[in-house]
């Protein structure tokens, strides 16, 4: 815990972002380019879905990123409520829009995939609906954190929302097992062997790593900007 507090001090965090942001951005761009080009040109089409299976190389990483980002929001909410760590609040403010972007893109690409595969843009399927709920949770978090005149109250309300909303993550994960859904079950699990051909698996994992690294770079950059903005604000208050 002592080490975590050390690295989460603003000065140390700014030092970490100085090298972590460009490193994640450069590595992420390279890896993502390889993943997306491989997904678009090298990976084979599916025997049933044809070329539309290539949407998977965007859709699945976005779904993973959306869930991971919400888990981060919930961890930040917990840190904010228990330790009142101000950096947790800043991370929560900056991670919210990134998570909302990932969720929106997951829903839109899912819709674009659903039309040629299922014959419809949208169904009120358990997986799709729980993902839509996640998007609304992100929107709620973004709005509620800025809704109060007193920022501390806003952070507390947003932290509570993120902790309550975490229940949606297992629902998203297990919805395809608990209910009869149009959405296919998971092809990749942490414990089992992937049910996907290696020629499709490696571009998927590569683009997922690429999107994650770029997401980290964007998050670090946004947190750094927020810290600098607060420092400027402190200096303005000091000058008055």
């Amino acid at each position: 815990m002592k080490h975590i507090h050390h690295y989460l001090s603003p000065a140390n965090f700014l030092q970490i972002t100085r090298w972590a942001t460009p490193l994640c951005a450069i590595c992420g761009s390279g890896i993502l380019s390889i993943g997306l080009i491989a997904g678009l040109c090298l990976a084979p089409p599916d025997w049933q879905q044809g070329e539309t299976v290539r949407i998977m190389y965007i859709h699945v990483p976005m779904a993973w990123l959306a869930s991971a980002c919400y888990a981060l929001l919930a961890i930040c909410g917990l840190c904010s409520l228990i330790w009142r760590h101000p950096l947790a609040n800043i991370i929560a403010i900056e991670a919210g829009p990134l998570g909302a972007y990932a969720t929106a893109l997951c829903l839109i690409t899912g819709s674009l995939w659903g039309k040629p595969s299922w014959g419809t843009w949208w169904v009120w399927d358990a997986r799709l609906t729980s993902m839509l709920v996640l998007f609304f949770l992100y929107l709620g978090h973004i709005l509620i954190i800025r809704a109060f005149d007193d920022p501390i109250r806003g952070h507390r309300a947003a932290a509570l929302l993120s902790l309550v909303g975490i229940i949606d993550l297992p629902i998203i994960k297990f919805s395809v097992q608990w209910w009869n859904t149009l959405h296919q079950p998971a092809s990749i699990t942490l414990t089992g062997t992937p049910t996907m051909a290696f020629s499709m698996l490696w571009p998927l994992l590569t683009s997922a790593v690429g999107f994650t690294l770029i997401g980290l770079a964007l998050l670090c950059s946004r947190i750094k900007a927020a810290l600098l903005e607060r420092r400027s604000y402190s200096l303005i208050l000091r000058g008055e």
């Binding site: 501390i152 810290l227 402190s234 200096l235 000058g239």
Partner: peptide, 19 residues
């Protein structure tokens, strides 16, 4: 406009002071 010493412990140097 408002120069501060790098070794200063003033709250203005702490970006999270406002929070």
């Amino acid at each position: 406009l408002h120069p501060v010493s790098p070794t200063s412990q003033e709250p203005a140097l702490n970006p999270l002071h406002v929070e």
